[in-house]
Simulated scan of single mutants.
Amino acid sequence: MMRIIMLALTNFAVMAVLFISMTIIGKLFGINMSAGSMGGILTMAVVFGFGGAFISLLMSKWMAKRSMGVQIIETPQTAQERWLVETVRKQAEKSGIGMPEVGIFYSPDPNAFATGANRNNALVAVSQGLLDHMSADEVEAVLGHEIGHVANGDMVTQTLLQGVLNTFVIIFARLIGMAVDNFFRSSDEESSGPGWGYFIGSIVAEIFLGFVATAIVMWFSRYREFKADIAGADLAGRHKMINALKRLQQAHAVHDLPGEMAAFGIAGGLGTGLRKIFMTHPPLEERIAALENMR
């Protein structure tokens, strides 16, 4: 529930930034960003819809390193670090992608994630808890899962999907705001720009449509996890991948990673009811069953 509340607050903040930015862009470039200008609305929707998503993608590695405290293994110092780097190297070569950066972040919970702007400039990081509580075979499978995310281009695909959905949210929220404003505006009232109906209608519509867009992105994220599991099974072996997921299931301590990293981790938290719609990962039992039934 807290995640949903934070999403609503974020949408209010985005609206405030958009209104301020609309005015600045309009003044600087002479673009009519008024409520009645369809060209202005479309321009704003594309700029902010895709702009925010791609800026987030380009900054993803830097943000991951900062927020998670990832220590990049530049020169392996221990046998474990050497094995980790060499395993990622072999899997990357087999998948036909560039060698990702490899790192470790401190967390007692077993988890891992991959991020980066493209297939040849990615980051794969594992938690210390994962290294401490999983066997080498299981860690190999987890690394294969993350390499699968990179090889499948999941980071770019999700960014494109998020950008398209953001654009539609912005456009339809403003169209709804215009419709609400026209409905409450009296027929003899002179038009002097958008009224209170436009602003309130746009804000409410953007929050509602934002929830719908997030649900679609989270559905796609859950779908991607099955594909990454298959990649992990191909790279490390099906039984290793199944055993790794079972180990995560036994841990009873799988938590969502923060922010952008959540969608590309090996596992997410548990959810029921409405919360399940906004989960980045499908239940572990479903993923295990899918691998066990795979031909």
Results as ranks from 00 to 15, higher is better:
residue 85 V to N: 04
residue 102 V to M: 07
residue 109 D to W: 02
residue 101 E to S: 13
residue 143 L to T: 05
residue 150 V to A: 00
residue 136 A to Q: 13
residue 89 R to K: 15
residue 149 H to P: 03
residue 146 E to H: 00
residue 92 A to N: 08
residue 148 G to C: 08
residue 151 A to R: 09
residue 71 Q to W: 06
residue 148 G to Q: 10
residue 84 L to Q: 11
residue 95 S to N: 10
residue 114 A to L: 01
residue 144 G to Q: 02
residue 134 M to N: 06
residue 108 P to K: 15
residue 121 N to C: 10
residue 145 H to Y: 11
residue 82 R to D: 07
residue 147 I to H: 01
residue 130 L to F: 01
residue 75 T to K: 14
residue 131 L to Y: 02
residue 150 V to G: 05
residue 143 L to K: 07
residue 126 V to A: 03
residue 84 L to P: 02
residue 84 L to Y: 03
residue 145 H to A: 11
residue 76 P to C: 13
residue 97 I to V: 12
residue 108 P to Q: 14
residue 144 G to T: 02
residue 79 A to Q: 15
residue 116 G to V: 08
residue 91 Q to G: 08
residue 115 T to E: 01
residue 75 T to M: 11
residue 149 H to A: 03
residue 138 E to Q: 15
residue 109 D to M: 04
residue 146 E to K: 04
residue 145 H to V: 04
residue 75 T to L: 08
residue 150 V to N: 00
residue 101 E to G: 07
residue 121 N to E: 11
residue 128 Q to A: 14
residue 134 M to G: 01
residue 126 V to H: 07
residue 116 G to K: 12
residue 93 E to C: 06
residue 96 G to D: 10
residue 129 G to I: 04
residue 132 D to A: 13
residue 98 G to R: 08
residue 118 N to S: 13
residue 83 W to I: 10
residue 137 D to Y: 09
residue 107 S to Y: 12
residue 71 Q to S: 14
residue 137 D to V: 09
residue 128 Q to Y: 02
residue 94 K to R: 14
residue 138 E to C: 05
residue 104 I to C: 00
residue 150 V to Q: 01
residue 101 E to Y: 09
residue 100 P to T: 06
residue 124 V to M: 03
residue 71 Q to A: 14
residue 126 V to G: 05
residue 106 Y to W: 06
residue 92 A to R: 06
residue 117 A to S: 09
residue 104 I to A: 03
residue 99 M to A: 03
residue 111 N to D: 12
residue 78 T to H: 04
residue 81 E to L: 10
residue 97 I to R: 03
residue 117 A to M: 13
residue 118 N to R: 11
residue 120 N to F: 11
residue 141 A to F: 08
residue 76 P to D: 15
residue 122 A to W: 13
residue 141 A to W: 07
residue 99 M to D: 03
residue 115 T to M: 05
residue 136 A to H: 10
residue 72 I to V: 15
residue 73 I to K: 01
residue 92 A to G: 06
residue 81 E to I: 09
residue 152 N to F: 01
residue 153 G to V: 10
residue 151 A to L: 04
residue 115 T to R: 03
residue 98 G to Y: 06
residue 73 I to P: 00
residue 107 S to P: 00
residue 123 L to R: 04
residue 152 N to Y: 00
residue 110 P to V: 01
residue 125 A to V: 05
residue 99 M to N: 07
residue 103 G to K: 06
residue 78 T to S: 15
residue 105 F to G: 00
residue 119 R to V: 12
residue 138 E to L: 05
residue 93 E to T: 03
residue 150 V to F: 01
residue 118 N to C: 12
residue 127 S to N: 09
residue 81 E to G: 05
residue 91 Q to C: 07
residue 95 S to R: 14
residue 139 V to C: 00
residue 125 A to N: 03
residue 73 I to C: 01
residue 133 H to I: 00
residue 128 Q to R: 14
residue 146 E to G: 00
residue 108 P to R: 15
residue 111 N to F: 04
residue 110 P to Q: 02
residue 153 G to C: 08
residue 121 N to Y: 11
residue 79 A to R: 15
residue 112 A to K: 13
residue 115 T to F: 01
residue 80 Q to A: 14
residue 128 Q to K: 14
residue 80 Q to F: 06
residue 80 Q to R: 13
residue 139 V to E: 00
residue 88 V to P: 04
residue 122 A to V: 09
residue 76 P to N: 12
residue 81 E to F: 09
residue 146 E to V: 02
residue 82 R to Q: 15
residue 108 P to F: 09
residue 78 T to A: 07
residue 109 D to Y: 07
residue 107 S to K: 12
residue 76 P to Q: 14
